[in-house]
Design a protein around this nucleic acid. Structure first.
Lengths: 154, 154
DNA sequence: GCAATACAGATAGCATCCTATTTATTTTAT
DNA sequence: ATAAAATAAATAGGATGCTATCTGTATTGC
């Protein structure tokens, strides 16, 4: 029975991580509805703000950890809302350069406040050492997973 | 700067959890392609096996942590493949009862082996104490998130 | 007994991610 | 110099989750 229990625990861990991220997404979703941006849309704004105007879509996608086509649609929405501007790169006519509009910058401020409040609410009971430990675990899992992925593909 | 750094770390933690679960799903996806079941489909099979034949869709959905409509579509696929059988509940004509077919039971065996191998591969570098600690963190986050969710809805 | 409410499941439609392919442009190799 | 390969972004289509709504059945309240 000990073996069985251990196996179930490990099994549940990854399952519950997925569950947790779905729930977190739902919380963010309801929190951002009032701002008029979807949950998927706020992160590109913050990353763009952090990386600075004038970057390419490809680099923003890499920063977000999503694929190019996934970003294209989100950008279409953000550009339609006037939060981001997409211009052509004079030095490479295949590429597009991204920049926050003034409204986009204002939105970044609002989003940053909301996200910080929600994250604080979620993490406030954890000490710095615990946060760091979780970060370390996640990093180890990421590394291992990347190796596994590479092995399955190669 | 200290404040800034801490903030970014916390920020990254939840972001990276989402990233991690997406990657894990991708690994499972490529591993299960050869079995002819999608990543979303294997978990209902295992849960049904664990819960036993004759349960209702509603209870399986609750066990999986997904909503009824999300399960309906997955079940349609699994039934079309002949892995699960859906029958009417004589005591309540609204409800349907679920059972694994013989092929479904065989699939459960294959899936269990594959999942166990992948999870072992991912988690083998973690000690039991570390696994338990991660579980504890996840549980605390789940609890806190549920409270937040309830507060936002009420 | 019958109307109102609750519940199980299915359907419709949205959001987000992915991979595969297409188009336009740039870089590399012969 | 030109043909082949590589690259940036867009488009097409699939998978998975959600909420809202519909249908049929059971339960509750008067």
């Amino acid at each position: 029975m000990t073996t069985e229990t251990t196996k179930v625990d490990k099994h549940n861990l990854l399952y519950r991580l997925g569950f947790l991220t779905r729930r977190w997404r739902q919380v963010l979703d309801s929190a951002f509805q009032s701002l008029g941006v979807t949950d998927a849309a706020w992160r590109p704004l913050l990353h763009l703000h952090h990386l600075g105007d004038g970057i390419r879509q490809k680099d923003l996608a890499a920063s977000l950890g999503i694929e190019g086509p996934s970003l294209t649609r989100i950008l279409d929405q953000l550009i339609a809302k006037g939060l981001i501007e997409r211009s052509e790169d004079a030095s490479d006519r295949r590429a597009k350069l991204l920049a926050l509009s003034p409204q986009g910058r204002a939105m970044v401020t609002e989003i940053t406040g909301k996200v910080a409040a929600l994250e604080h609410d979620l993490l406030s009971s954890f000490g710095d050492a615990e946060i760091e430990q979780m970060s370390s675990f996640v990093e180890r899992l990421e590394t291992r997973l990347q190796e596994t992925r590479a092995r399955l593909k190669g």
